[in-house]
Computed example of a mutant assay.
Amino acid sequence: MSSTRLRTARLRFALLAFLTALGLALGLGAATAGAAGSGTATASAPAAAPPAGKPAFQLPFACGTKWRLDTWGHNPALDIVKEGNPGSDGLPVYASAPGTVSAAYWDDGSGNTLQISHGNGWFTAYYHLQEAPTAYVTVGSQVTGATQIGRVGKSGGANNWAHLHYEQRYLASGTFTDETHRRPVHFGGAEYSGAERTWASVTSGNCAQPQTAPYQPWNCPNGSVCFFSETGGRGTVCKTDRNVPASTCGLRKSFFNNGHPQAGVDHAYVSFTEGGTSCLHHGWADGRGDFAAGGRTIRSVTWGGECP
């Protein structure tokens, strides 16, 4: 994707946001302002079904999160950012469906790039990832929708705009595809395709399995305390927003309440099967709570007031 096209996409995004706000101020709908002012059609109910044999692809993001999809000038590919485009940089990217990593490479245009083969000739491609394409997976890695494959970034020709350029491709034979093999994108069985189209808020249905995640605040919902089972804050995430008298969640790292104060549940007391207790609180700006090194098993979690 050329830097000129990316600059054009970013200008369109800014213009669409401005015209949407102006339309709202005039009592017009956001979709009307976007379509009339920018030439971008805002779609809300895609209906076209995927072809027979196509995998049941889902948005490559955490279950329940909301995203903005744009075809801009490279339909049927998509540029994807967080709903409203705030803070997309660094958000985790997951595989769209089970498959095998077939290519991981750097390209001056697409930056840190991954391709995944999903069988029956179907592939997905992920551009502009933040870290090296082998930071989370390598060629030959088996992945599912629960597998983090990277993070949203702005590598290569992304022109300092953090977003995921995403494609679904079809090639009956072979392990490597290119942009000539692109096909209309489907998520959850609905088609997101068409020249110059926008879907302002699409919810990820990538919910089949618990998703592994790095130790970052966006992985812990507001009002919850989250415990990560492996070193570095990876592995199974155990979450609770209430008192839990017993748990088998092994602990390495944790997040509390995503850094947001919440009356009555600003602190969580944690006791361990191996003995001892600790207290998590939102006091740090990012809501982080580190326990002592080494895995321990949580015996109970009690929500309360101030930590002693």
Rank of each mutant, 00 (worst) to 15 (best):
H74F: 14
A36W: 01
L78Q: 07
A48T: 15
K54L: 15
D70P: 00
T42Q: 14
A36L: 14
P50T: 15
F61T: 05
G73T: 14
L69P: 00
P46Q: 13
F61A: 08
W72V: 12
C63S: 05
P51L: 11
R68S: 12
A45V: 13
G34R: 06
P55Q: 08
N75C: 09
A47P: 00
G53I: 13
K54P: 04
L59S: 02
D70S: 12
P50K: 10
G73I: 09
T40E: 15
P55E: 05
S44Q: 15
A62I: 07
A33C: 09
A47S: 13
K82E: 09
Q58F: 06
A56R: 11
T71E: 02
A77N: 13
P51W: 07
A62C: 12
L78K: 10
T42S: 14
C63A: 10
C63H: 05
R68L: 06
I80S: 03
A35N: 04
H74C: 08
G73C: 01
N75Y: 12
A43H: 04
A43V: 15
G39V: 12
C63V: 01
A45Y: 11
A45W: 10
E83H: 04
N75H: 06
A52R: 13
E83N: 04
D79W: 03
F57Y: 12
A56V: 10
P46E: 12
P60D: 05
A62T: 00
E83K: 04
A52P: 13
R68Y: 13
F57E: 00
A35D: 11
G39Y: 06
R68I: 08
K54W: 02
N75W: 06
G34D: 08
P76T: 09
P50E: 12
T71L: 06
A77R: 05
E83T: 04
P50F: 10
N75E: 10
F57T: 10
G73Y: 09
F57K: 12
D79G: 01
G39M: 00
P51V: 11
G37P: 03
W72E: 14
G34A: 14
S44V: 13
A41V: 10
T42R: 14
A33Q: 09
T42W: 15
T71K: 02
I80Q: 05
A47Q: 14
T42I: 11
C63N: 10
A47R: 09
T71A: 03
Q58Y: 09
I80Y: 02
A52K: 08
L59C: 05
A36K: 03
A49M: 08
W67Q: 03
T71V: 03
P46R: 14
A47F: 02
D70H: 13
I80V: 13
A33D: 07
D79H: 01
A48H: 03
P55C: 12
A56H: 11
E83C: 03
L69Y: 08
R68M: 15
Q58P: 02
R68A: 14
A77M: 10
D79T: 09
T65W: 03
P50R: 11
G53A: 05
D79E: 11
L78R: 08
A49Y: 00
A36N: 11
K66C: 03
A49D: 04
A47T: 14
P55L: 06
L78S: 08
E83V: 08
G73E: 13
A43D: 14
P46K: 10
T42L: 13
C63Y: 02
G34P: 00
A43R: 14
T65P: 09
A47K: 15
L78M: 00
